[in-house]
Amino acid sequence: MNPLILTILLFALGLGTTITFMSSHWLFAWMGLEINTLAIIPLMTQHHHPRSTEAGTKYFLAQATAAAMLLFASVTNAWLTGQWDILQMSHPLPTTMITLALALKIGLAPLHSWLPEVLQGLDLTTGLILSTWQKLAPFALLLQINPTNPTVLIMLGITSTLVGGWGGLNQTQLRKILAYSSIAHLGWMALILPFYPSLTLLALLTYLIMTLSTFLVFKLNKATNINTLAISWSKTPIITTLTPLLLLSLGGLPPLTGFMPKWFILQELTKQNLPLLATFTALTALLSLYFYLRLSYSMTLTMFPNNLMGTTPWRFFTQSTSLPLALSISMAIALLPLAPAMMALLTP
């Protein structure tokens, strides 16, 4: 792709999210989302491979439907209450429809089935943009609409954590596994949203950091399935020792960063007298933990048969910049002691 066009597209990607962030009017927010969708499609299909074209088509259909439904819900809101403000949604019908449309946009189960297929068709950089940056604008809207009835979000959240764990069990392709892990994390965020929105922000932040570092690790290894991960010790030994910690942090094991949002969310759910819900979500996290464990097992605990020359690529000097990976992976592993500071930062 021409660097000039790439610059224009990336600028439009930033512009769309910024417009959605700064808007208080539904039409303006919808415009931002549309600009976002339009700008990422050529990035998806930049190799013109059949798979990437198909991924772009599926993404376009899902996002255009979701955007149209969002605008329809806000028009209905305007007809019923005469309001266009995002912060003043009072009627339950448009609020529910907007919640569902945004769930389709970010891929919450049961509206998730486009996400694994789309992510499987992309290269890792675009997949990184899709699973981090593209989630921001819909979440900004979800955090603002202040749902009156928490049932929809709880159902979406529960289904997402379950489906995200369950769907990833049988996958061998890393991008599909990452898509299901993304669905599971988004489920946690949607679950806590009606009770404590600051925790949603916290979970989104840690999700962004962990997903960023996971994608960067896979990109460094040029890995798209589990088999490729098994020889990563011969390419980058240090990263190979760190990656299981990163994956377990995604799974949410205690001394790592990923434990922080899960811990706070479970605590808040029990405080809200929902112990059954908390238990169920904690159990569905075990499903996700299974495939993270499988990834780390095949990455570090197995010795793949290899010839002598195949074990030496780590001696070569790598060309890629290592600063983003270093920063994000250390944050994704060791941020748990900063939990009180982060909570103080995010609580209004």
Partner: peptide, 15 residues
């Protein structure tokens, strides 16, 4: 922007 999007999408010269 849509002009650039359409140009990039329909470019695929060799497939």
């Amino acid at each position: 922007l849509t002009l650039f999007v359409v140009l990039e999408l329909t470019r695929g010269l060799n497939r």
